[in-house]
């Protein structure tokens, strides 16, 4: 049995959850190399995943001064005294109810698309890999510019 695992480079001490994560990542890389756009569609298409509950809990309440004369861009209503509101990390403010309803469905700011973390592992892996690849491509482009300009 040992030789079987040896051949497949499987570490028998690897914790199952870690193994699942690693295999997911590897499968994902294969798919990404094969057809990045289609993979992105697969992850994104149904609608983006909801924001993680813990991220929503972390959002802060704005000062009433910040709401004065402003309008919630989800329901298009002006803020009234006693209205509950929340501020996104991008500083955009919405009614608490309006924003929470939206974040239960999608993880990004309705105005600027700033993304909150999600609980969807595949989606987070995809984002991570996409970022790495973009960084790599930028590096290569810069190197190219250095050499040929």
């Amino acid at each position: 049995m040992a030789s079987y695992f040896d051949e497949l480079h499987v570490d028998e001490d690897e914790v199952p959850t870690v193994r699942v994560e690693r295999l997911t990542r590897e499968t994902f890389r294969m798919l990404f190399d094969h057809d990045p756009i289609r993979y992105g569609d697969m992850v994104n298409y149904q609608s983006s995943p909801p924001a993680s509950k813990s991220e929503i809990e972390k959002l802060i309440t704005p000062l009433f001064d910040e709401l004065l004369g402003e309008q919630c861009r989800i329901c298009l209503c002006q803020y009234q005294v006693n209205d509950k509101a929340l501020t996104m990390p991008c500083k955009h403010i919405f009614h608490e109810d309006c924003l929470k309803t939206w974040l239960e469905k999608s993880n990004f700011c309705p105005l600027c698309k700033f993304e909150l973390k999600t609980d969807n592992k595949m989606y987070e892996l995809y984002k991570e890999e996409l970022k790495k690849r973009q960084a790599r491509e930028n590096n290569i482009a810069q190197l190219h510019d250095l050499m040929f300009s």
Binding site: N44, S47, W102, C109, P110, L111
Partner: peptide
């Protein structure tokens, strides 16, 4: 009209 819809639109 699909996945890129945002509630402020």
């Amino acid at each position: 009209l699909k996945d890129q819809w945002a509630a402020a639109m």
